[in-house]
Computed example of a mutant assay.
Amino acid sequence: MLEFAPDQPRWRQVADVLRQRIADGTYQPGSRIPSVIQLQSEFGIAGATGQKVHRALRAEGLIYTEPGLGSFVAKR
């Protein structure tokens, strides 16, 4: 589990981890990223925090969401 720094919001720290996984190829373009529920389990965060992570990554164009299917890494 991630040890959270007290000086940054948790959603930002989790988003940073996912950004790094996208950058290093852990999550390839077109592959599914963890759902909000999976983020809750992996990082010990609240559902609202996981939703904020997804919103931030969508706003940056790093991921897209297919309703009913999940969120996926955007092609560059």
Score class of each variant (00 low, 15 high):
Met1Tyr: 11
Phe4Ser: 06
Phe4Trp: 12
Phe4Tyr: 14
Phe4Asn: 13
Ala5Pro: 01
Ala5Cys: 05
Pro6Tyr: 15
Gln8Ala: 10
Gln8Arg: 13
Pro9Thr: 08
Arg10Met: 10
Trp11Ala: 14
Trp11Asp: 12
Trp11His: 13
Arg12Phe: 08
Gln13Ala: 02
Val14Asp: 05
Ala15Trp: 02
Asp16Tyr: 05
Val17Met: 04
Val17Ala: 05
Leu18Glu: 06
Arg19Ile: 07
Gln20Tyr: 14
Gln20Cys: 13
Gln20His: 14
Arg21Gln: 11
Arg21Asp: 11
Asp24Leu: 10
Asp24Lys: 12
Gly25Met: 06
Gly25Ala: 05
Gly25Leu: 14
Tyr27Gln: 11
Tyr27Leu: 10
Tyr27Trp: 13
Gln28Cys: 09
Pro29Gly: 14
Pro29Gln: 06
Pro29His: 11
Pro29Val: 10
Gly30Lys: 07
Gly30Ser: 07
Arg32Thr: 01
Arg32Pro: 04
Pro34Leu: 00
Pro34Val: 00
Pro34Tyr: 02
Pro34Lys: 04
Ser35Arg: 03
Val36Phe: 00
Ile37Asp: 13
Leu39Cys: 04
Leu39Tyr: 01
Gln40Tyr: 03
Ser41Gln: 15
Ser41Ile: 12
Ser41Tyr: 09
Ser41Thr: 10
Glu42Asp: 03
Glu42Leu: 13
Phe43Ile: 01
Phe43Pro: 04
Gly44Pro: 07
Ile45Ser: 03
Ala46Asp: 09
Ala46Lys: 13
Gly47Phe: 12
Gly47Asn: 08
Ala48Ser: 14
Ala48Tyr: 12
Thr49Asn: 08
Thr49Pro: 08
Thr49Arg: 09
Gly50Cys: 06
Gly50Lys: 08
Gln51Ala: 11
Gln51Glu: 15
Gln51Arg: 14
Gln51Met: 15
Lys52Glu: 07
Lys52Asn: 12
Lys52Asp: 08
Val53Gly: 08
Arg55Phe: 07
Arg55Tyr: 08
Arg55Thr: 10
Ala56Asn: 11
Ala56Cys: 04
Ala56Tyr: 05
Leu57Thr: 09
Arg58Gly: 00
Arg58Ala: 07
Ala59Tyr: 04
Ala59His: 10
Glu60Phe: 06
Glu60His: 02
Gly61Tyr: 07
Gly61Leu: 07
Leu62Tyr: 00
Leu62Phe: 01
Ile63His: 00
Ile63Pro: 00
Ile63Trp: 01
Tyr64Arg: 08
Tyr64Met: 05
Thr65His: 03
Thr65Met: 05
Thr65Asp: 04
Thr65Trp: 00
Glu66Pro: 00
Glu66Gln: 14
Pro67Val: 01
Pro67Asp: 06
Gly68Tyr: 07
Leu69Gly: 04
Leu69Arg: 15
Gly70Met: 03
Gly70Cys: 08
Ser71Gln: 01
Ser71Thr: 13
Val73Lys: 10
Lys75Met: 08
Lys75Asn: 15
Arg76Thr: 02
Arg76Lys: 11
